[in-house]
Simulated scan of single mutants.
Amino acid sequence: MTDTLPEIRLEDSGSKGRYVLRSAAGDEAEMTFSRAGEHTIIIDHTEVPDAFRGQGAGLRLVTRAVEEMRAAGKKIIPLCPFAAAQFRKHPEWADVLKS
């Protein structure tokens, strides 16, 4: 089902940012983050509207952040309950988890 989701966009304002999926109808699924220094981001919120429910949108957003932070050699602090749950379900992400 995730093949039908739109492309994830990164909106970055320097100290804060978000990964967003926007539907043709204008619905947005988002995962917001804040920077905690040069090498760490804090995932602070994930929101998936009903239009995206059951399609893996939230997981795709967190996965994208994990992939980008891994490639950049950075770490993630998952304060958002959804993101924290995904880190528990994906032990292969331990290399980007800030301990």
Rank of each mutant, 00 (worst) to 15 (best):
A84M: 03
F87S: 00
K98H: 13
R9N: 15
H90C: 05
L10D: 15
E11K: 08
E11I: 15
S99F: 09
R18I: 08
P81L: 06
R22W: 13
A94K: 05
A71Y: 11
L21N: 07
A71G: 11
R53L: 11
T4W: 12
G37H: 06
L21G: 05
V66K: 00
G58V: 03
I76W: 01
V62D: 02
L5R: 03
I41T: 01
L10Y: 12
M31F: 13
Q86W: 02
E7P: 10
K75Q: 06
S34A: 15
K98Q: 09
A94S: 10
L61D: 04
G14D: 14
L21H: 11
R22P: 11
G58P: 03
R64P: 00
G73N: 01
T4A: 13
L59A: 15
M1I: 11
K89R: 13
I77A: 02
K16T: 15
Q86Y: 02
S13M: 14
P78D: 04
D3G: 05
E67H: 12
W93I: 00
H39P: 03
V48Q: 05
A83R: 02
I42V: 14
A51C: 06
A85W: 02
G73K: 00
E11N: 09
R60V: 02
H45Q: 07
D12S: 06
A65G: 03
K75C: 00
I76L: 01
G54I: 12
L5E: 05
H90E: 06
E38S: 14
H39W: 15
G54D: 08
D50P: 12
K74V: 03
I8E: 02
I42N: 10
T63Q: 12
E67D: 14
G73E: 01
D44C: 02
A84R: 07
V20R: 05
A25C: 06
F87K: 00
R64D: 10
F33E: 00
V48S: 04
V20G: 05
G54E: 10
G14Y: 15
Q55Y: 04
D3F: 09
M1V: 12
R64F: 06
F33I: 01
W93G: 00
G26F: 01
E67T: 14
E68K: 05
E68Y: 05
A29G: 10
A57Q: 07
E11Q: 12
E30V: 14
R60P: 01
A84H: 10
T40W: 08
